[in-house]
């Protein structure tokens, strides 16, 4: 688990990347047990077509490269593609938008539906070390800033408390006909993110935003791992 992550980080570094691509970020998180959306990395139309053997329609098509952190703003996401023709059309559009110099690939991703979006993050605090964040996700992250932090390593109790300590914690309850969110999955994911940071000092920050609660179970739909500037920086106290 650790070695696979190290390989991913090392490859990114030798590429001169400051961040891991969405695909690689999720591979790291998934190795630690964070549930992520099913997806296939593709670089051609034919690969995209083949991908739907693994990922069932409707799918999402996204540009996936280390440089594309803000895909939505750049129009590099096409959602709810329900057929092969829609997928191919989207592939053409996104390729055009990404531009001639685009060297990244594309992700064919399952369409995770659910109306509750939350976020898990990690910030390396200069005093306390890795701090794990939990809060409302999607567009509400920045608008409401309803988030809470705990210092890694997290005990189960810490993770439980985090889930209850945001103002909007009732979003995890059984509301408006939706089942209560599976808290064990969330606790495990919070603890896992702390562990990723403890195991890999060269990871500076993590954003998993959003996690969509599908039914009762959270799934990471987008993720970003930021690497530290200094390769040797494995010591931040």
């Amino acid at each position: 688990m650790a070695s696979r992550t190290e390989r991913i980080i090392k490859a990114a570094r030798s590429n001169g990347q400051k961040t891991l691509s969405e695909y690689d970020s999720k591979r790291v998180l998934s190795a630690y047990g964070v549930p992520v959306s099913r997806e296939v990395l593709v670089s051609s139309q034919s690969e995209a077509k083949a991908a739907v053997k693994k990922v069932k329609y409707p799918v999402v098509l996204k540009a996936c490269s280390a440089d594309e952190a803000h895909k939505t703003e750049k129009g590099l996401i096409a959602v709810n593609l329900a057929s092969q023709s829609a997928l191919i059309a989207a592939f053409k559009t996104l390729t055009k938008r990404a531009g001639k110099n685009y060297e990244g690939a594309f992700l064919v991703q399952e369409m995770v539906s659910g109306s509750r979006e939350i976020m898990i993050g990690m910030h390396r605090d200069p005093s306390f070390g890795p701090a794990v964040m939990f809060g409302l996700g999607g567009i509400f992250t920045e608008i409401l800033q309803d988030v809470t932090f705990r210092v890694a390593p997290l005990r189960k109790k810490d993770a439980r408390e985090m889930l209850r300590s945001i103002r909007g914690h009732k979003i995890l309850d059984a509301v408006r006909g939706m089942p209560a969110a599976d808290l064990d999955i969330l606790c495990h994911s919070l603890m896992a993110v702390g562990q990723v940071a403890l195991d890999h000092p060269e990871i500076e920050e993590i954003d998993i935003n959003p996690l969509i609660i599908r039914g009762s179970k959270a799934v990471a739909v987008d993720a970003l791992i930021v690497l530290s500037d200094d390769e040797a920086d494995g010591t931040s106290s």
Partner: peptide, 21 residues
Amino acid sequence: AAVAHTGSLAADGRVVDGAIE
């Protein structure tokens, strides 16, 4: 931090708040 959101949300003493808790 410019890149990820978590870094900018770690302001206002939120990490200390969590640690004290």
